[in-house]
């Protein structure tokens, strides 16, 4: 599993480059009008762009259903297809994982997290994924209390959790 430190996102979302042939822009409960602006820019640049909007209340369920849904979408596209997404980090990282699984490379992805509200965390003990709001949380699979580490798996879009011990501090393990 490839992992790296927590991604750093710039404050302002950079616009997608007018590259590729066609685009799908995902508005994942994004703040403001970023996704719509991107979609308009791409369309004005003469690219075939579609906008997919996921409202906040539906986001969690949408992420759960994403792996097969994204695979199905990708199977109907060709090389030349680009994907853009903006929204909270856990949703953007989940989408990135599905995009890479479908064969897209970073050059074909334009991603921006406009906030970090939750993190999807992998429990190395039971393998469950929990949507955690803070640094310390209860695993949805085995009910252990876990700490979130500053490591993200790029292939799954999940942070790594570990059992909370008295001398462990959130984010201390690297």
């Amino acid at each position: 599993m490839t992992s790296r430190s927590v991604p750093q996102w710039p404050d302002a979302a950079p616009a997608p480059p007018p590259a590729g042939r066609c685009w799908t822009v995902f508005d994942l409960a994004a703040r403001g009008t970023t996704a719509r602006d991107w979609h308009r820019r791409l369309t004005v640049a003469g690219l075939d762009a579609e906008l997919v909007t996921v409202p906040e209340p539906q986001l969690t369920g949408w992420i759960e259903a994403l792996p097969p849904a994204f695979g199905e979408l990708a199977s109907r596209r060709h090389v030349g297809w680009r994907v853009a997404a903006v929204g909270p980090e856990h949703a953007v990282l989940a989408l990135r994982a599905c995009a890479v699984e479908a064969g897209l490379m970073d050059a074909e992805l334009h991603l921006h997290a406009d906030r970090r509200t939750h993190r999807r965390v992998y429990c190395p003990h039971c393998g469950a994924t929990t949507l955690a709001a803070g640094d310390r949380f209860r695993c949805a699979g085995c009910a252990r209390t876990l700490l979130v580490h500053d490591h993200v798996s790029l292939s799954s879009g999940r942070y790594l959790g570990s059992v909370d011990t008295p001398d462990a501090a959130p984010g201390a393990a690297r």
């Binding site: 990708a74 199977s75 596209r77 060709h78 090389v79 030349g80 479908a102 064969g103 897209l104």
Partner: peptide, 9 residues
């Protein structure tokens, strides 16, 4: 050919 290659080619 280059117009219709599956994603990931």
């Amino acid at each position: 050919a280059v117009e219709r290659q599956p994603v990931g080619t």
